[in-house]
Design a protein around this nucleic acid. Sequence first.
RNA 1: GGCCCCAUCGUCUAAUGGUUAGGACAUCAGGUUUUCAUCCUGGUAACAGGGGUUCAAUUCCCCUUGGGGUCACCA
Length: 473
Amino acid sequence: MNVVTRFAPSPTGYLHVGSLRTALYSYLYAKQQKGTFILRIEDTDQARLVPGAVEALISTLTTMGLPPDKGPYIQSERLELYREHAHRLLEKGDAYYCFCTKERLLALREEQQATKAPMKYDRACLHVSQEEKEAKLAANEPHVIRLLIPEGKTTFTDEIRGDITIDNKEVDDQVLLKTDGFPTYHLAVVVDDNDMNVTHIIRGDEWISSVPKHVILYNMFGFAIPKFAHLPLILNPDKSKLSKRQGDVAVEDYLAKGYLPETLINFVALLGFNPTADREIYAFDELIQLFDLSKINKSGAVFDHAKLDWMNGMYLRTKSVAEIITLAKPFLEKAQVSIDPEFLTRICEIEKDRLITLQDLSDRALEYLQLSAYDPAMLIWKKADAADAHMHFVALLELLENITDETFADRTLLEAVVKKYIEEGSFQNGNVLWPLRAALSGKEKSPNPFELLWIFGKQESLKRIDHAVSLLK
RNA sequence: GGCCCCAUCGUCUAAUGGUUAGGACAUCAGGUUUUCAUCCUGGUAACAGGGGUUCAAUUCCCCUUGGGGUCACCA
């Protein structure tokens, strides 16, 4: 059996991280089984069309390394197929016309809510006479086609949860074809998955309660029932379904913040699944190898930003300075940071292990470019005083002034020079290094002074120390 | 509320009818360091509760509790 999976988002204009995982698992499974991964756009809601959404989606999927093998299939271009199927059901008596107005349905629902009755369509239109029906159709009255749910129970097997049985009494006479002639999700998904020979439907847990409708449709059409795998939800910290209100949900948001595609893939892959449990970092090919539908968890997983940060740092550290600078370029441009390439390279070299996101490099570059105002008291080492700091600054100024540019280009030589000064004067490290570092960085916390001297070079270093001296007067 | 699903450290997870219940993130402590970060070492921290089944249950069954999802001419 040739495995076919599909990713079938509605074109909202962005890719939800939950959808990313759905797409990822579908992709991994297809690749592992040497099957096909299809992209299908479920754009049957005309009220929610977003221009450019399809292109954006494909672009994001591609940057995430999940390009579809086939598609995109666009449901709005396949309306005739759905209509045909709806009418086939009509003829068999498995579906019926409904002329109820929105107002009536709303009133019905309100009444059911008030009396705590099950919220279902009351089948009023199932019983309209043949003549009345024909008259209404002839008069072009707005109508929909509803599925006539048969009596009995529906059982299906979910690859993750096992058998699930639902009484058909719980299932509503779902609208199949809307007034505007577009299908609803339920009709379109069944028709398309069959038409595209989809073998494994991998999607979010929120769909599980509508599977009976689909199974009933499969049976009515005489279609082979595919395998279902409903993924546990990705959750907010409060355990509710991951939502915009509680932070970013779009993959594009995370990319824009400077998280790497491979981080996002790795992170999201481990939400609800762990191939070996003794490791957190997996290469994409390993995920393909190790992916196992039966090992997917049943319960929802909280999206933990702290772990995402850690993981992005890990991935960043595997990259070279040149790679990071290339990746960070869009961020620098966006922040309008114009910086000498050599200077940036040195900054990146030193800051590399401190970066969480690519955005961080841009932020740091800005900080190195311009010394911000600081409290002069910061220049003074906790075990010393202003006079001591001043004395060292003056000495260091003279010392550094006489150093060659070659020495300034070498971190270890720079360190040796300063250490020698400390040694010869029998000073304490902190008395010299703290003020020097503080003067160079203007911050309480920063890389060490040797690294800072190296980053800034002679001219800027002297300038900053000089500035510190002026502050101590 | 009806229906459906779920339940191991704060979080992501592993394992097992008999284990000191393992790992990672976070957190705490220590080491390295002038500070920060990195790195290293160590610590705190979990089987929701109650019944069964069993020689033995975290593991199997039931109930309770808790959480979530879903109940549209949206997907």
